[in-house]
Amino acid sequence: MIPANFIYIRPDCLSQAAIAFAQMQKEGRAPLYYGGGSEIITMARAGSISPGAVIDIKSIPECNVLGLSGDKLIIGAAVTLSTIKESRLFPLLGTACGRISDHTNQCRITLGGNLCGTIIYREASLPLMLSDAELLLYGPEGAKICAFNTIFNRRMQLKPGEFVVQVHIPATAINLPYIHVKKAAQEKMDYPLVNVTALRVGEEIRVAFSGFGSYPFRDFEVERALNDRGNSPKSRLDAAMAILSQQAHTDSEGSGAYRVFVLRNILEGMLEEWR
C-alpha cells in the first residue's frame, strides 16, 4: 500500500517521456522515471520518497531493444535482468544480472532501474565499467551518447529530466574472459558483502567492485597494481589491497575488516586463475 497518490504516465516515445517529465516538474510534482518499479514502490510504501508522478518508460520501443547492431550490443534500459541473462549475449553481464535480488524480481527489475537505483550495490554497473560501454541518454536536450564511466561515478550522474535509454557495449568486449565472484554474508542470494567483477582484455586485468565500499567503483590504480607483471602475485595483491583497504565499508552485512579479508581471498583466487 502506497499511501500517497501520484500520476502514472506511460509514454510511447522518447520525446513524450521528456515532455511529460518537464510538465510534471513544472507542476511541482517531483516526477521520477519508472522502470521495473521495485525500488520506487518499496520506497514510496516506506515513505522515504513520495513522487507526485511516475513516468514509466517500458512502452518506449528504444528502451526495449536487445541485440547486436553492427559492432555494438544494444540493451534497452527497460530490458529485464532475466531477459539479459537468458539472451546470453553478454555472459558477464548476464551472470551479474542473475545474481541481483532473486529470480522472480529479475523478471521485473530492469537494467536501467538497477543502474539508476539508490540502493548502494548497483551490481549491473560493474561489467559496464569494464567493457568500454556507452550510454544513450535522452533528456530535455534530446539524445546523447556518453561513455559509461563518465556518467557513472559512484552513481549515475544524470541531469534533471534525463534518463537512460540504452546501454551500448562494444561487441569486442562481450566475449572476453571474465571472473564474477559475489560473496554475501551467509548465503548466495543476498546483497553482496563483496562483489568482484573482472574482465581480461588481452593480458590486462580490469576489475570493479560492489559491496566492498559504499558505492560501486573501478580503480585504475588498483588495476595498475594488479597488472604489474614485474611483481610476484603476492606483492601485486598486497599493493592492490593497500589501496583498497581504505575504502572498506561497515554495515549490517559485515564489517570493513571482514570485507578486506573476503576481498583479499577473492583477488588471490583471481590472480591464481589468471596467472
Partner: peptide, 28 residues
C-alpha cells in the same frame, strides 16, 4: 546460522526488515 537482532550505538535495530534480517532460502 544467520538471524539476529543486533542494535546500533543508538539502541536501534540494525536489521529491521527482510533485506537485512536474513532467513534461509531453499538451496541451503
Amino acid at each position: 546460522s544467520r538471524e539476529a537482532f543486533f542494535y546500533d550505538e543508538k539502541g536501534l535495530l540494525k536489521t529491521p526488515n527482510l533485506r537485512t534480517y536474513k532467513l534461509m532460502h531453499i538451496g541451503q
